[in-house]
Design a protein around this nucleic acid. Structure first.
Lengths: 343, 343
DNA sequence: AAATGAAATGGTAGCGCTGTCTTTTAGGCC
DNA sequence: GGCCTAAAAGACAGCGCTACCATTTCATTT
């Protein structure tokens, strides 16, 4: 594989064109629209590029064409497995397209989100995916000026910036609490950690469900701004038991907390569901194989990521979806941990 | 905020320079080396940029300067929480620097890795982080030509492409098995899933430890190429029990499998550790709060990501680390699940 | 006051590619 | 064979920025 030395030492498209004995622009077309070349030239360019080991320069392409093939993605956490699933959907969908993903981690801070948005601005992304509907005023302003399709994911709400894919966390929280009420539980606790906007809406759903049944009591609620762990689930549950020993059931705002509660119950020899019902949120894989299997609220996280990319890429290509707001819903996975003792 | 209309409709550095009444290059320097400007001009450029809402164009910058501030990262999985931790380290470290991360998901395929490497080539990244030491020949060749600092992470081994941060999975597997042997367990099973190169090296460590103690028996081994889940842990354990009912202990190649084994034992009323000892791998957070707490091998995943970025960025800036291969080690976290019944 | 050198500023030429428009060639029809 | 149309190929300018080198400014030294 002999190397042509050019001024800069890099192999440029011009070198390929020269070797293939075609014009620069014809070589360029080979990469953007090979069908436009005659068979002979197509083959010549192809073999010349291969022979020289030509690698296109994306920066030059972006500058000349005034567009990129980058989709910026902003998520609040990398460790939370909820977002791993969303990301997997995003990366899976992007692989089928010509777009690549630029990921930013906001760590649940809307200020960090704003900062990352400014970085994205410099990249001129072709599309954008952001988490949630609680952006700062400045972030909203930036989004408005970015002039590219934008999807807000994880939840749906009023006043979308552009497109939305998610579900109602309020409804999901309401459904979880209602399920426990329907099973005949009366004193239903709430365990919450890292009270981000979506968690708070689940909480609001829980509160309203209990109030509607005249079962609401602030003594049943334990929350902390700390981030979630399994161990924390045990700790919070211990706090809840201390402040409301008569508690019958507990709705955990995510599955890690629920697992922590399960372990704490095992430690204290509390029977599930006979002495304590448990409902989690997200329906991570382990919930179904726990002993006993734990009830949870399943959301279509993978689908959410995938749809977001599909919608954004379609919009980039000029096919804006009919429905700009897509509700992917949720499903209450009722398992042994929340089946009524009486009823 | 009035807008200057230029030919392209975008605000360019030239517009900022014009408004600030300085030359183009002075405006450019404001962003690359503000200290080189006199106070007066610095302020004029700053306010002009702000007034116009100027956003630098990274593609143009990359093209003109012939370098980028992108660090490419290739990992095999987004759902495996091992890599979430590594990624968190990577993103945390990158935030302190001026570099941004471009992430690729290889899904444990070295062919996919090769493909993504070609994509990265087009971006001309300033540095690269790849997972493991098992690349294809072609991938190695690409890495060689990329002419930027490269860190291989997760494990260490012979023949580094450039730099390495990790630990010996063989030693860790050997240590886990040795611990069980030292506790007096004689029939020690192995549960493995998604047998990637690192898992296989852990397995080799287990095999050699048992062979050294003359305790090796292939009947004690159950593996599957399927990807890991908690549920799978239970299933594999059931298979192991079926083919070797006299098993006393089990070394699980990761913590999800170990949790599955725990649940399966609970289901079958098998006492841990009296009737069955369990050792996991990775030491995910839940291991310590399980009932009983589960023994595992802790690796410094977050540190691994962080160090990799630190080493790569230092190398980009011309400060190649003294030690090109960094062994971050591992730590056997001995908990109740593997404490000997006799001894 | 002249000489010196460092700091501050500017001019110019690309970086590698694609959009736009123009020219050439090939193909189809009477 | 001549004419028309479409396909294929090319010329050229310029995307927005920085590297490189040249020039100006100004404080300091003799």
């Amino acid at each position: 594989m002999e190397r042509k030395r050019t001024k800069s030492g890099n192999i440029r498209l011009a070198d390929v064109a020269e070797l293939a004995e075609v014009s620069l622009i014809t070589a360029s077309r080979f990469f953007s629209n090979p069908g436009a070349l005659s068979v002979g030239k197509r083959e010549r360019v192809e073999s010349a590029a291969k022979q020289l080991g030509y690698v296109p320069n994306l920066a030059a392409r972006a500058l000349a064409s005034q567009r990129t093939e980058i989709i910026g993605v902003l998520i609040p956490s990398l460790t939370n497995s909820v977002f791993s699933d969303v990301l997997r959907g995003i990366y899976d969908a992007s692989e089928g397209s010509r777009y690549s993903i630029q990921l930013g981690n906001t760590r649940y801070s809307i200020l960090q989100e704003e900062k990352l948005l400014r970085v994205f601005q410099s990249q001129r992304p072709a599309g954008l995916i952001v988490t949630g509907i609680n952006q700062t005023e400045a972030s909203r302003a930036i989004l408005q000026t970015m002039n590219c399709p934008i999807a807000q994911i994880m939840e749906i709400g009023p006043d979308p910036v552009d497109m939305m894919v998610g579900f109602s966390h309020y409804d999901a929280g309401f459904a979880a609490a209602s399920h426990l009420l329907a099973q005949g539980f009366q004193r239903i606790g709430f365990l919450g950690a890292r009270m981000d906007p979506r968690v708070q809406r689940r909480f609001a759903g829980y509160v309203d469900a209990l109030k509607a049944a005249s079962r609401f009591d602030p003594r049943y609620i334990v929350t902390t701004p700390t981030s979630t762990t399994v161990t924390l689930g045990g700790t919070l549950f211990a706090d809840l038991l201390a402040q409301a020993p008569d508690i019958e059931a507990v709705f955990c705002v995510n599955d890690d907390l629920a697992l922590g509660v399960l372990f704490e119950c095992q430690r204290r020899h509390i029977q599930i569901p006979e002495q304590m019902a448990i409902v989690g949120f997200n329906d991570l894989e382990f919930m179904a194989s726990a002993v006993p299997p734990l009830t949870s609220v399943r959301s279509n996280r993978y689908e959410m990521g995938k749809s977001a990319v599909t919608m954004v890429t379609a919009a980039i290509d000029g096919f804006r979806p009919q429905e700009l707001v897509v509700d992917l819903g949720f499903k209450l996975m009722i398992r042994h941990s929340s089946i009524a003792r009486r009823n």
